[in-house]
Structures are given as C-alpha cells and as structure tokens.
Design a protein around this nucleic acid. Structure first.
Lengths: 134, 134
DNA sequence: CGGTATCCAGTTCGATACTG
DNA sequence: CAGTATCGAACTGGATACCG
C-alpha cells in the first residue's frame, strides 16, 4: 500500500452488513436514512447557517435567497423533529422565534465537515468525468 | 471552549459560504451535489459492496435483495459517470462485466465512513426524538 | 450474462396566496 | 413576524417484459 495504514474498506461503512442484504433492511439503514435527511435541497445550507449562530425565521429567509416560506418551515420542522434543531418561541409582540442546533446537531457538524471537505477537494474531478463525451 | 481545540462551526462545512446565499448557488454546492448522489436508494449499499471487492453485475443483483436489474444498472451507470466506479468488460462467451471502485471512489470511503460511524452511533437518538408524541 | 424499454405510483419542490 | 393552504410540475423508484 502506498498510503500507509489506512484500511478504509474495512471501516464501519459496512457495519454488520450482511450479504445478501435483506430487502427492507437497506432502507432502515441509519446511514442512508441520515443521508436522505441531509441531502434534500435546503437542509445542509440551513445546518451550516445555524452552525454559525442561532437565527430567526425571517433572518434565515433573507439569508437563503430563493427559499419559500413553505420550504423553510418544512425543512426546519423536519430538522426539529429529528432532534437536530430546536425552536424557541419568545412571547413578545410581535412573536419571535429562534432556531438553533441542538448538541446532537452540533455533533453532526464534524463528520459532515469531513465529507464536505472531500467534496470541495474532489468535486471538480467528478464534474470533469461527467462532462467528458464518451 | 469545553471540548478542546475543535471549532467545528468554523470548519470547511461553510467553505466560502456567502450570506445571503445567492439563488442558484446552493444547488451547485459540491457538498449537496455529492450528498444527493450518494443518498439515493441503492448507491450507498453498492459503494459498500464494491468497497470490499469488485463484483459482477449478477453478483450484485444477488447480493442486494430486492433491487431490479433496471435500478442496479441505472445506479451503476450513475456512479460510473461520476468517476466513482469503473466498468470493465471481459470479451468472453458469455460476456462478463466487472464493477470496481476507482481511486476516487475509494477515497470517498473514508469521509463517508466517518458519517456512517456518526449515524450508527447517534441514529437511535434521532429515532427516539422522531417518535416522541409532542 | 448483462442488461434496456415501457409504464405507472409516490414523493419533492416551487409558485402563489392567505393568516394569527 | 412567522408561518399555513392549495395546486401542479418534475423527479425517483418499482413492476414487468423483452433483448444481444
């Protein structure tokens, strides 16, 4: 091996993965479940923004150009119902609502950042391969 | 800081992220692009299997219970056209085709495994939060 | 063996309008 | 300020059948 001691193919990516993989097992896979949650159109962006500091609803709405109130609300509710984001209501007039990452959400930033770093470093290669003719 | 030197909120997850995020910029985000590719129904499973060793088409078909030839083919082609998997044809009779991870694909295993480890460790919390009544 | 073609159901997302 | 309601377009994935 040229890269040293890394044996990534034996890592937890295939955590207790049986072969053949039983139908109905793959989609209860925690990893794919997480990936699907995080890969929808706005989630990653919102996690990133909330990773900086808590935001108000319209603050997020202004920060993310092109999102509709509907999608912003839906995405935040989904994150909240997964325990990654928490929502705090201030009983003021007019009412204020603040969204922030939970500790669980914060803990996701690290592995997600690792993947993000890979994407930033290697995405150009993917695009190049995609666009080549044959 | 209580956790030491980790400052994940300033990590590359928000690599050059402008605020407000321009419309049409979020979906050219390398990270979301990667996440969407990897989070479809069968991709992660196939990457995992190919991360062990190269596989033949029907070998994968048997290994993944419930996948149709159509989805197997489509998913493999997508991976191939992203440069993560390569396809080698053996001109035998009958023809044989082998799929394997490219070096780019192998390099993805490590950050993906980090996220997988997080999911395996923390997914139970997500499920618990999802299912609580209020 | 290693696929492709056709058709169809479910889900996601956006536009637009309206509310406590 | 912080959302929800309604509608429709586009995309994803499955079933089934057929092909070189």
């Amino acid at each position: 091996m040229s890269t040293g001691d890394t044996d990534v193919s034996a890592s937890l990516l295939d955590h207790r993965l049986p072969v053949p993989v039983p139908a109905g097992e793959y989609d209860r896979c925690p990893v794919t479940d997480l990936l699907r949650r995080v890969s929808d159109k706005w989630t990653l962006l919102l996690i990133t923004l909330l990773g900086r500091h808590p935001h108000r609803f319209n603050e997020l709405h202004r920060a993310v150009e092109g999102i509709s109130p509907r999608m912003l609300s839906r995405t935040l509710r989904a994150l909240e119902s997964d325990g990654l984001v928490e929502r705090e209501v201030f009983p003021t007039v007019p009412p204020g609502v603040e969204y922030r990452l939970t500790p669980l959400g914060v803990s996701l930033l690290e592995p997600l950042s690792a993947l993000a770093d890979w994407a930033v470093a290697r995405h150009a290669e993917i695009v190049a391969v995609r666009q080549r003719p044959a």
